[in-house]
Simulated scan of single mutants.
Amino acid sequence: MKITENMTIMEVMNMDRSVASVFMKFGLHCLGCPGATMESIADAGRVHGIDVDKLVAELNKFFEEK
């Protein structure tokens, strides 16, 4: 499955909890907060000043290498 910026953080986390390391690398440490279940990756990226394209690329790389 391809990760997109429209998915929520929790959707991705539910695919494999060890992907948390990628989110943490980008400064998204509050993976259990309510925002993680409601906000898209794009929304979280904008709020936290993260390059969403790079984050999505890293997430997809993580799953490709599994």
Score class of each variant (00 low, 15 high):
residue 1 M to Y: 14
residue 1 M to V: 15
residue 1 M to C: 07
residue 2 K to F: 14
residue 2 K to S: 10
residue 3 I to P: 04
residue 4 T to H: 05
residue 4 T to M: 04
residue 5 E to N: 12
residue 5 E to T: 04
residue 5 E to A: 15
residue 6 N to L: 15
residue 7 M to G: 02
residue 7 M to H: 03
residue 8 T to S: 09
residue 9 I to S: 04
residue 9 I to Y: 03
residue 11 E to S: 06
residue 11 E to G: 02
residue 11 E to W: 05
residue 11 E to F: 04
residue 12 V to A: 02
residue 12 V to Y: 01
residue 14 N to F: 12
residue 15 M to Y: 12
residue 15 M to N: 03
residue 15 M to D: 01
residue 17 R to E: 08
residue 18 S to N: 15
residue 18 S to L: 10
residue 19 V to H: 03
residue 21 S to Q: 11
residue 22 V to Y: 03
residue 24 M to E: 14
residue 24 M to N: 14
residue 25 K to V: 10
residue 26 F to S: 01
residue 26 F to G: 02
residue 28 L to G: 03
residue 28 L to S: 07
residue 29 H to L: 14
residue 29 H to W: 14
residue 30 C to H: 07
residue 30 C to E: 06
residue 34 P to T: 11
residue 37 T to L: 01
residue 38 M to I: 13
residue 41 I to M: 06
residue 41 I to W: 05
residue 43 D to M: 14
residue 47 V to L: 05
residue 49 G to V: 05
residue 49 G to E: 06
residue 51 D to C: 07
residue 52 V to R: 12
residue 52 V to Q: 08
residue 53 D to I: 07
residue 54 K to C: 04
residue 55 L to D: 03
residue 55 L to I: 04
residue 56 V to Q: 01
residue 56 V to A: 02
residue 57 A to E: 13
residue 57 A to F: 08
residue 60 N to A: 07
residue 60 N to H: 09
residue 60 N to Y: 13
residue 61 K to F: 10
residue 61 K to P: 00
residue 61 K to I: 11
residue 62 F to A: 01
residue 62 F to K: 03
residue 63 F to L: 00
residue 65 E to L: 08
residue 65 E to A: 10
